[in-house]
Design a protein around this nucleic acid. Structure first.
Lengths: 239, 239
DNA sequence: CAAGAAAATTTTTGATCAAGTTTAGGGCAT
DNA sequence: ATGCCCTAAACTTGATCAAAAATTTTCTTG
């Protein structure tokens, strides 16, 4: 071809801003966020073609995202080719409690000495915003900020394997958290974030681990309660 | 609710013979097995088109299988569109030790009371075959049977969430086990399977958990040792 | 004649493949 | 050693085929 002095068409676009993110990655992140924060309710079916139309993406990327989320437990094969957001039962919640209680304090412990003062400030800032969200009854903001607090803390630990496991756990009970808020409101959602921040400032490993353990157990117990009362009242899976 | 809901859905004969397994599932299982048992070495690149040609499958199913395994930690994005079998470093092994030590004894404990005499017989049979494999230096058989022993035990626990997590852990250190065997042979690979079986027969939860804990720690320490000696001797990792 | 259920048809959705487009990495020339 | 170009591989789309759900039709029975 000629093009001796021909400028290449895509020469400048390769800056940092461009960041060619593959479509399957975008779809994955979008779906993941919507599941994690309860925008897709438990039991809700997720169809490939529906996502293709909604997101305007091709079929293969959507399939890849669904496979990925299925293997993370965020979606569930419903027997015959159907995929839904899972509805955890009591036994599942029990397992999640065991796993979170075993792993998250460990992550918190490892984050203790690695947390810089700025990190702790950020965590405190998240918690402040979280309190504000609770005060005005903003469920979505509460869910996002609560996740952000834990995620930030665990990221500080710099333990990628443990982090991946725990993030997978959050995907499993995330949809239920919104149901809990719908039942109990945001007022009765105590946490141990201030204790966590104080223990981090004191660099007290055990105290950080204990605060996170209490936070985790407290939160999961509420999920279990609401789940059991839901199972009793009626299986209303309305749209 | 429409109370009719007559079970007019006649069960298709698909139970026994038909069993139409999707291609993406077959590819997933094939790849998973090859990674878990070290047929794909750590660091080895995995290309989509290579698999398409090797397996004779289409591109979409292969992509789905790779996404799934990537999200399970069995494969790894190598930055720019490249996928390889991960090469765990010491920090990664440390994390795996923490996670396995936290979760597998818990699974074993829960399996104790659910294990039927037949289940225990099966476990003992696997261990006998395992000893035979060690005696004749059959690395592949050793790897398969060792996995089978643990997998069988954890399946008995009937805790799907914990099981999924632990199987994910196995995928991460599986490729390294073959490297360990290549270094140390099969003779010096002690386990605590007989102690486990005896404790199961006695229905002694704590003893079962302790045996599995020792087995896990013992095995992972060997992985760590070989990994460190490998890191010292040959930096064969591409820059 | 009406009502309900079984069967057949339609329609929606999932699974797979093949072709076109884009991008990263290696080879080659200067 | 540096920069351009070319190849090979990843990414994406659209089309096609098969399977399952929804709907309609028809047949049987009270």
């Amino acid at each position: 071809m000629s093009g001796v002095s021909a400028p290449r068409q895509v020469d400048v676009y390769r800056d940092e801003i461009s960041q060619r993110i593959p479509v399957h990655q975008q779809v994955y992140e979008d779906l993941r966020s919507r599941i994690l924060f309860g925008e897709l309710a438990p039991g809700q079916p997720v169809t490939i073609q529906g996502l293709v139309e909604t997101l305007g993406a091709g079929m293969t990327p959507v399939r890849e995202a669904i496979r990925r989320l299925t293997s993370e437990g965020a979606l569930e094969f419903q027997g015959n080719r159907r995929v839904t957001v899972p509805t955890p039962n009591t036994a599942c919640i029990e397992e999640l409690i065991v796993a979170r209680r075993a792993l998250e304090p460990e992550l918190a412990r490892r984050a203790t000495h690695k947390a810089s003062p700025q990190d702790i400030d950020i965590l405190e800032g998240i918690d402040t915003a979280l309190d504000a969200a609770i005060a005005r009854g903003d469920v979505s903001a509460y869910l996002h900020l609560n996740y952000e607090f834990h995620s930030k803390l665990y990221t500080i630990a710099s333990t990628p394997v443990l982090l991946a496991i725990v993030e997978g756990l959050w995907l499993r009970f995330g949809p239920s958290l919104r149901v809990v808020c719908g039942r109990m409101g945001t007022q009765n959602l105590p946490d141990k974030h201030k204790e966590t921040v104080a223990a981090l400032r004191a660099e007290d490993e055990e105290a950080v681990a204990a605060a996170i353990r209490d936070d985790v157990v407290q939160g999961m117990e509420q999920v279990r309660e609401v789940l059991e009362s839901n199972a009793l009242t009626g299986e209303m899976i309305d749209t």
